[in-house]
Design a protein around this nucleic acid. Structure first.
Lengths: 189, 189
DNA sequence: AGTTGGTCTTGACAAAAATCAAGAAGTTTA
DNA sequence: TAAACTTCTTGATTTTTGTCAAGACCAACT
């Protein structure tokens, strides 16, 4: 069973039958380091699942890249506003390392709904879960200092700090690279 | 046609038939100023639509109230993680003024799905829309200063600053009341 | 009218974080 | 291997924001 299937099974609790139907629509895709899964302004007509590697989602604001999220193994990558509402994409989605993805295009995605009865329900639950995660993230910015946000992320996933350029983590945490560097030093004691 | 029906119609583009089915499940409820629609730790078994009045969603972190959102006419109020996943609620949802809501309880909510074919699809679209709004909100904290966040909100909804205690707006914007006060003075020039 | 309680503002100061600049360390490229 | 890049760190400094304390303002209540 692939990581994708494990993920879907664990998360959604679908039958093995539905599981194989769903996963059969996903096709393996590899990205080389620095390749783009999606570029701002295009239409996002596919959904990716990260099997291996690291992917960054960012947007250019003025002359600065703002990193919204770093996806590692087990995460989906997509521009939801584009995928669901057929608007132009807001995010650049770029491989930070060589990556293996499972990707489904929009046409196949819509097919799932015709084959798996509960699909729209599962979609709803998944997006609702993502929503609550984002709610928490907003709250960290309303109630925590840069130092607290750094410590939280570091405790949640230390490995990330070895695998991802720190400037991107700094941006994702809402601070400058210099501040992140100093907080690291401080936390290391 | 009520505000609720207008909202549903505008937003989801359902037929008049479906619209009346959906709205018939919502019941008018009034809240007095300071009444709670929901308290942290309880289960959120209802969804509310704000017809009139102002409602604050906040959470107690340590000894501080952190205001996540202020809902005015046209907004839904709910603790999504509780309503969808049947977990204990994370938010306190309290009326800042006397309010008129349209409220649907969970049992009736589930009935809609049996009566309106596209219901789960509509739910999905609605939650997806909420998700993209939250994405933007996260981005404001990654890329904007307190001053810029204040100006953005003020330009978006000046009225709010006359209707809502400023301390709550400050919290929602991720700054102290003192900072908000100074930014107001500065912007007024 | 006076008191009380809550809210907002202001000032002085402290802390946090950003900016600017330089240099160290590590990679990639030629 | 050396040169060129890029990334990260560090120091000095400025700016932004938070904290604490006091007072102004306003509304509600007695």
């Amino acid at each position: 069973m692939s990581e994708l299937e494990k993920y879907i099974k664990t998360y959604f609790g679908v039958s093995n039958d539905d599981l194989s139907k769903i996963s059969s629509y996903f096709k393996p895709v590899t990205l080389k380091k620095n390749d783009y899964f999606l570029k701002e302004g295009r239409y996002c007509d596919k959904l990716g699942f990260v099997q291996r590697g690291i992917i960054r989602e960012y947007v250019l604001i003025g002359d600065k890249e703002v990193t919204k999220w770093i996806s590692t193994s087990g995460y989906f990558v997509v521009d939801l506003s584009s995928f669901v509402f057929h608007q132009t994409a807001r995010w650049n989605i770029q491989a930070l390392t060589d990556c293996e993805l499972y990707v489904i295009d929009q046409k196949d995605y819509q097919q799932i709904g015709k084959v798996v009865t509960r699909w729209t329900e599962l979609e709803k639950l998944f997006i609702a879960k993502c929503f609550t995660v984002l709610e928490d993230r907003v709250l960290t910015h309303l109630s925590m200092t840069a130092e607290e946000r750094y410590n939280q992320l570091f405790n949640f996933n230390k490995e990330l700090f070895n695998q991802v350029p720190l400037q991107y983590l700094a941006s994702m945490l809402g601070m400058t690279p210099e501040t992140l560097s100093r907080l690291r030093k401080k936390a290391a004691g």
